[in-house]
Nucleic acid binder design. Structure first.
Lengths: 110, 110
DNA sequence: CGGTTATATGCCGGTCAAGGCATGCACCCC
DNA sequence: GGGGTGCATGCCTTGACCGGCATATAACCG
């Protein structure tokens, strides 16, 4: 059930910000601290939550700990999203038909 | 920025369960109450959070309120996920490589 | 070995959200 | 209109989380 942990981890705006930072490139804690404007302990705690949720991994470089995104949970989120995406595609299709009815034949997406 | 509201809404397991229920078909509150085993007031409050986040819409049918999924926020989630999906595809592609990050990815905006 | 840097952990106070209960409100049927 | 049903809202308590501060831990350097 790390699913719950995953959602809980991403529920916090600061943690989403950290995840966004790590999307650009892996970073040591110090950089993350500066970037999100929190104290170092708070940041470390957020990183722990992210680590427990499997969202990030740590690599030790001397005294520094370099955090990097782990792509696996992203796949899990994507899997969760999949059934809903179907629904949304259907509705987009219907909407598009309604809006563009006068000019073009229904466009087939994709 | 209903983005925060969206994440907060989906952070709760009960609310994700409700969303899953509504994926099958729209349902009146009574059905949702039975399905998720909460009291009716609690369920109504969860539905309010989902409504405020834009995830569900209500249709009134006599005394009943029939809730249905709104596909738009799903698109928002998908948009959020998109950059990470790229990363995850890359990593699948580079499975044989060491995850050493001495290379320097281009800095993106934001 | 002692000092310094880099990060993690414990503790504490404040805040917020979740759930239950009682109640209010709108709508139906007789 | 009166009673009953279906749902929403307000109040309250409890538990979780967040943030900061102080401190422990680990690794480097001279």
């Amino acid at each position: 059930m790390s699913d719950a942990a995953l959602w809980a981890a991403l529920a916090d705006p600061h943690r989403r910000a950290i995840v966004a930072l790590l999307l650009e490139r892996p970073r040591p804690v110090g950089e993350i601290v500066e970037a999100c404007g929190l104290s170092q302990p708070s940041t470390s705690k957020h990183l722990r939550v992210l680590r427990d949720a499997g969202l990030v991994r740590v690599r030790q470089d001397a005294q520094r700990r370099v955090y990097a995104l782990d792509p696996a949970p992203i796949a899990a989120l994507d899997a969760w999203l999949a059934p809903y995406r179907r629904l949304w595609n259907d509705s987009l299709d219907a909407l598009g038909r309604r809006l563009d009815d006068s000019e073009e034949p229904p466009l087939s997406k994709d």
